[in-house]
Design a protein around this nucleic acid. Structure first.
Length: 220
DNA sequence: GACACGATTAACT
DNA sequence: GTTAATCGTGTCG
């Protein structure tokens, strides 16, 4: 079932939780369909969040999608060569970064897109399925999500990129931990528990063993 | 206009 | 474990 406008009417943290287990669907120009289950998310809260592009109310051409209605794609370039894909929440300037997917459909196409970007074609032959989309920029390469094709699109009113609820809703345990790659914004916000992932899923970009151990001690 | 710097990744040692 | 790659963007002058 395709998710609709009302499904996205969530706060940033609610959406970070809600998106786990949902299926991201991409239709390429040649009508090939790629699907991946979201297994890792990060929340960027907006005004108060030092790690957010919209910290302090900064609103520019780049981050405009963070201020658009919930369920809008925010795609930006990072390190001059990679893209990251986010989904805006109902909170102004707040969005959820999609950090990793478990490939479900079109796996060969994902692999092809990933290999195309690599210089060393020898190591490119050794891809495991779990290494295809286990990082925010890897999944953008694997699903051909770029700023020039999908930034600011409405994920409910679009036939190139959308979300679906999974056919088989399997239960999972959620791990909550610190976000990745934002140390320069200062300890306070770098350490906030705003990254979420599916416990024991092999497609997660980075496990947080300390967070897992703590979680195990109180829930298992 | 200039300039420092990434919400990362792949290729090294 | 360490580091080069690579350029759009925000910030300041």
């Amino acid at each position: 079932m395709k998710l609709t406008k009302s499904d996205f009417n969530l706060s940033c943290i609610e959406m970070g939780h809600f998106l786990l287990g949902k299926v991201l669907v991409r239709r390429l120009e040649n009508n090939v369909i790629i699907k991946g289950k979201i297994v890792e998310t990060e929340c960027y809260l907006g005004g108060i969040d030092k790690a957010s592009h919209s910290f302090g109310g900064r609103r520019t051409a780049r981050n405009e999608a963070m201020f658009m209605p919930a369920g809008t794609a925010y795609v930006y370039m990072t390190y001059g060569m990679y893209y990251c894909f986010n989904i805006s929440s109902k909170e102004l300037g707040a969005a959820v970064l999609i950090r990793s997917l478990e490939p479900i459909q079109g796996i060969e196409k994902i692999e092809e897109l990933r290999k195309m970007k690599m210089k060393n074609k020898i190591s490119a032959k050794k891809f495991k399925t779990t290494e295809l989309c286990n990082g925010p920029s890897k999944l953008c390469i694997g699903l051909d999500i770029r700023k020039d094709n999908l930034n600011r699109v409405d994920l409910c009113e679009n036939d190139m990129l959308w979300l679906e609820s999974p056919i088989d809703e399997t239960d999972f345990t959620l791990v909550t931990c610190a976000r990745i790659g934002i140390a320069s914004c200062g300890e306070e916000w770098a350490n906030k528990p705003l990254r979420f992932y599916i416990y024991q899923n092999l497609n997660v970009s980075k496990r947080d063993k300390k967070a897992e151990k703590y979680m195990e001690s109180i829930t298992l």
